[in-house]
């Protein structure tokens, strides 16, 4: 066991290397200091301010600049980390291209759940179940987007995602849970080049 895989607490009963299927547990690396996340946070705050206030005279804009600067100073590194910005702008463009497909998928699954809701023999049709599967996604943001996409698609809810990428999903009937992990995982993986 090398030095960086050993947990700090020697009394910790969990041997990470024995349990992890594909990689040793890495302690989180300290965030790199970079001005880019701060600049990005400032821009997001400023655009939100302009949309919400709707006044474009000098006084209100300077108020917005001061408020955005304070927010950026206190919590500028929370929205994005420096390594998240490395894939710019490819990741973001691919993510925006993913959204319409997700919306169409949500609409289709909505129609399925609506049919279940209005069906007179609903109790015979539904067959709730919990099942687990191992996802191959490694990136934290990819796992987050995949879990949120599963939850947004009606018929399936992500119950739990372990730190090793094991998903626990609750499905309303057999047909809803069949497609996982299928095309959606491939598409989320394609955003991050996995």
């Amino acid at each position: 066991m090398s030095a960086n895989t050993k947990p700090d607490n020697p009394n910790n009963p969990i041997d990470y290397q024995a349990y992890s299927p594909f990689k040793p547990f890495e302690p989180p690396t300290p965030p790199e200091r970079s001005p880019l996340p701060y600049f990005f946070t400032f821009c997001v705050c400023m655009i939100t301010w302009l949309v919400l206030s709707g006044k474009f005279d000098l006084f209100h804009i300077s108020l917005g600049v001061v408020s955005s600067a304070i927010v950026t100073y206190t919590s500028g590194d929370m929205l994005l980390r420096a390594r998240r910005l490395k894939g710019l702008p490819g990741n973001w463009l691919r993510f925006i291209a993913y959204v319409p497909w997700l919306l169409f998928e949500i609409f289709r699954a909505n129609m399925h759940v609506m049919r279940l809701v209005f069906h007179p023999r609903m109790m015979d049709l539904i067959d709730p179940r919990m099942f687990r599967f191992q996802s191959r996604l490694e990136d934290e943001t990819a796992r987050f987007i995949f879990a949120n996409s599963i939850t947004l698609t009606p018929g399936t809810i992500t119950v739990y995602v372990s730190i090793f990428g094991k998903y626990t999903v609750h499905a309303i009937d057999k047909a809803s849970g069949q497609g996982l992990p299928g095309e959606m995982e491939d598409r989320v993986g394609a955003i991050f080049g996995e």
């Binding site: 969990i14 349990y19 739990y160 372990s162 730190i163 094991k166």
Partner: peptide
């Protein structure tokens, strides 16, 4: 705890 699921794998 965070790692409770590890035992069940």
């Amino acid at each position: 705890g965070l790692f409770d699921e590890v035992e069940g794998r």
